[in-house]
Design a protein around this nucleic acid. Structure first.
Lengths: 207, 207, 207, 207
DNA sequence: GTGTAATCGAGACGGTACGTCGAGTCTTGTG
DNA sequence: CACAAGACTCGACGTACCGTCTCGATTACAC
């Protein structure tokens, strides 16, 4: 992945250094092609060609197609992530989290991408580890922070099971995304936040 | 898939009839092998061999590996599904729904199977349709019935968004299953039911 | 094949008798389809359909596709074979043999058919036997007769190696037909006859 | 096929060079297996395995089984072809041509191989072209040279139809080989040469 | 500058599953 | 029995693409 590596005090490796330009071109090509056509519909040579790189350069730095795809996804996702400031209430914080997610996911075929990666998670445990560290926990971290602030603020009980709350929140969203039984809209995002906060009761009131 | 029903007064088809024994042997072989080793780790010839059938007989009746896997999954799932009787309260009904699901899913590697199928859903829209009709809606139907009974009973507001409630419930469960960040236990099942019913508040109380 | 079978004094078999109409329809369908599109481009179901018969009826009477094709070829070839009368000279006799052959072979894609059957001859020795008995020897018989008459007539030496002469004659013709390096014309047929007659002298001397 | 020649100053192709060792191993495996068991009795994976190569490497360089078989045949045939020197008389030249051919063909089941290729010639015109260029014309070239020398030498008439003479010669040989009605022996080879020489006179006269 | 050591592009290679196709056999019910 | 219908077994085909490998060409730093 690369990010894992370089601490500042690298021992200055000998030989020709890795081309940063090529690295970014590969990630950009992967992001575009995989997202646009789907992971299975694009082969590595096409990514290489689009990036102006070669098959072997990709495999020198990424161990597999799926790891590359994940890296590309994470990279693109990070660039587009806004700040994480306190909105004053849990509801506002969660909405600020959910709304961009919904917008992003509704705009481009991320569902296909994520579904393919999730499948790989269960096919290759090593990839699963990378997935959880680089993607899942990274997403949950911000949601968790919002709940923690709410507890500190006295807005919700200190004993709240934050992890479960996150499952409720993200679970509902990913469920719609992956199972595809209903479309994902901004309005649904808000209502899910409400429901998580209030349960079934809220489901009636916010109808 | 076969379940197309078929009215009782079948027009008596000509020719050698399809072998019901072979059909079941194929479904059983698919269920066992795909579940045990994963969809990608098993090829069609292995399924055929285990079923004592031939490659082409499989392809004559199932258009692809994924459709076969889904049929096998649905068939096995149906056999094991208990009755759907009224337990008196929404909480009890939902628990009666969730507990067997959790037990089943914890016992065998269903996550891998479902992840692979979900990926295919997004790869092939036609398969997505089959998936939603044969699997998703079939599972949701029973949950929906529980909510409807609760409304009739006056237990929850008539205006409750049942679909969203189902997303909350199944979403949380599938989220844990697919993303694999936390294990799935019986206890978690109950707590998710509680949380769906009461939202974050309940998350504190039931902790 | 059929012709091999039935001696006249059949013991009158029980049950439904074989349909002669169907037999001929199958042979006709095989002749047309195989000759027109090639043995490999036509499958047995197509022959069956064209004949208004079924797959299994064909296989009840002909043991394989190639045997059927050969039977069809022989049948059609026989119908079209003229009489074998004495033309007065060996040259005239041979021309009377070669000309219709050339005409026939130039008019329709027999080369493809024969090439496929010859290949099968070497793939399956049992078929080779049928081929030689029903087709090769049958064709050579008439050529041989012409040479025998020439010998009786004193036109060529009695020591002439007739078999070799036949190889020279038919060999040249089949060579052009099968190897396809040069087209087959009526004129070529005559010249081959002339050349063979020139060589025959030598055939006697070197015996 | 490879024989495209290539001028000495090759522009030094980029990338990993084709493995000459593998190429030869594949040709050798094809030659042995196809000749030994017949083209249809051997599948490509068996050839690949015997060659220590992979299925896809074969298909990368040879478009079909038949083309591979032909290449293997031509390669093996070429290696075993002696020099083409003048023996002083047409008869001696032709015998020098025919005898090794007979010996070769009698020793191993070439008939089956050639019959299969000839069938393919008529099934696939593109293959027919390769066949004629790489095999047929190549074989005829040397026979033609012998006749040309005989003409220059004044041994036979200048008006002799050499092509027809070649058909007589090779036609008889191939006829015995392919139709299988009589065995092929050294003696027969010589007698065919004699017969052809006798016919050649006629070939000039009737021109 | 020159040497060393790594990267890069090009492309061949092994491995392996896919889904298709056809020959020939078997199993029904009908005539 | 013969026959039509059509399901079944067997097994090859040629395709696709992943990830590995082998080259020569290139690039940076160290000396």
């Amino acid at each position: 992945m690369g990010k894992v590596a370089g601490v500042s005090s690298a021992p200055r490796p000998r030989g020709r250094p890795r081309s940063e330009k090529t690295r970014q071109a590969i990630l950009a090509a992967a992001d575009e092609l995989f997202l646009e056509h789907g992971l299975d519909a694009v082969n590595m040579d096409e990514v290489a060609e689009r990036a102006g790189a070669s098959n072997s350069t990709i495999y020198r730095w990424w161990p597999s197609k799926h790891v590359l795809a994940l890296d590309a996804l994470v990279t693109a996702w990070e660039e587009a992530t806004g700040l994480d400031r306190d909105r004053g209430s849990l509801r506002a914080d969660l909405r600020a989290l959910v709304r961009p997610w919904v917008k992003r996911v509704a705009a481009r075929p991320y569902a296909r991408m994520i579904a393919a990666l999730v499948a790989e998670v269960h096919r290759d445990p090593a990839f699963g580890e990378i997935w959880r560290v680089d993607f899942v926990q990274e997403r949950r971290r911000r949601g968790r922070a919002a709940f923690v602030r709410a507890i500190e603020r006295g807005e919700i009980a200190a004993s709240t099971d934050v992890e479960l709350a996150l499952d409720l929140l993200y679970g509902s969203l990913y469920h719609r995304l992956l199972h595809g039984h209903e479309p994902i809209t901004e309005r649904i995002g808000d209502r899910i936040v409400d429901a998580v906060l209030g349960g079934v009761t809220e489901l009636a009131r916010s109808a």
